[in-house]
């Protein structure tokens, strides 16, 4: 951890030194940077965290025109490290960086749009726990019945079924709570950012440029609970649709509007 931070800091420090106007100097710089410290040494654990940082510097060296943008991007990369405290300030620094880049003429998104449409890290609506809890309870109930059946068939005391009931429902409740606590979404300047998962923690960037279309959907249970789900589609090969559950309907359509607008503003996408 400390290793990585150090090297990233040093990388941002390298940035300005590298910003020599001469083309030949730039090329030489980039070539020098391409040789990664530690070389190809297999499994060199201390050498690895330096990788990304060094390469930020490499990119800085590749194209003079990109320099300012990349220096800013490098800074925001540090700030963008999620789940490491002071989220709001790092988020602000990302927005500031992006605004800076816009004023430098590097980005085309209207700064007003950016400020208006991005959000902080947000949790889901707590009542989504009832939605998940309902399904978990059904599964736990079926499993309990099955286990109790097995127990009675084996001739063991049926009271053990009660134990199974407590254990299964306890596990289910824990899972639902953890799942709710883990879920975070954020409308960032250039991507929709998601954190989720109980057993497998997953953090995803979904760039606006890649969004194909955005749906909101409401199943019967969701309608009953007053919830809605946002589904974002990309052209990706796996996990091409990403859904954000547990939103109030107005929240969902607000989020849909934000994402839609940012997706329209984002330029340079592939038409496949």
């Amino acid at each position: 951890m400390s290793d990585g931070d150090e090297s990233r800091d040093s990388a941002t420090g390298v940035g300005p030194d590298d910003s020599l106007p001469s083309d030949s100097e730039e090329t030489a710089g980039s070539e020098r940077q391409m040789e990664k410290p530690g070389g190809p040494s297999a499994g060199d654990e201390t050498g690895q965290p330096t990788g990304p940082a060094v390469d930020t510097a490499t990119e800085t060296g590749t194209d003079p025109a990109e320099h300012t943008n990349d220096a800013v991007a490098g800074g925001t990369t540090d700030g963008g490290q999620p789940a490491r405290g002071s989220q709001n300030s790092t988020f602000d620094s990302r927005v500031d960086g992006a605004l800076q880049a816009i004023s430098d003429g590097e980005r085309r998104i209207d700064p007003g749009v950016l400020l208006e449409y991005t959000t902080d890290r947000r949790d889901l609506d707590p009542s989504v726990q009832y939605q998940w809890g309902l399904w978990t309870a059904i599964v736990a109930g079926v499993l309990t019945a099955f286990v109790t059946g097995l127990i009675s068939a084996a001739g063991a005391p049926v009271v053990l079924g009660g134990v199974a009931l407590v254990v299964l429902f306890g596990l289910g409740a824990g899972w639902v709570t953890l799942r709710y606590r883990r879920w975070v979404y954020q409308v960032r300047e250039d991507s929709l950012y998601l954190e989720r998962g109980v057993l497998v923690h997953r953090r995803t960037h979904l760039p606006y440029v890649r969004i194909q279309h955005v749906d909101t959907s409401r199943g019967p249970v969701e309608r009953w609970l007053g919830l809605s789900t946002l589904v974002v589609y990309t052209a990706g090969s796996r996990g091409a649709d990403v859904s954000v559950p547990g939103l109030k309907p107005e929240e969902a359509s607000d989020l849909q509007g934000r994402v839609k607008r940012l997706a329209i503003e984002a330029e340079g996408g592939d038409a496949l």
Binding site: M1, G4, R8, E66, P82, V209, G269
Partner: peptide
């Protein structure tokens, strides 16, 4: 199975590079 810090740094890195490559293409 790469180091968790490396994975997070790489995630940000790849995303940033993607964004700047898209800007250049535009």
């Amino acid at each position: 199975d790469i180091d968790v810090e490396v994975a997070r740094a790489l995630r940000e890195e790849v995303h940033d590079r993607f964004q700047s490559s898209i800007t250049r293409r535009a």
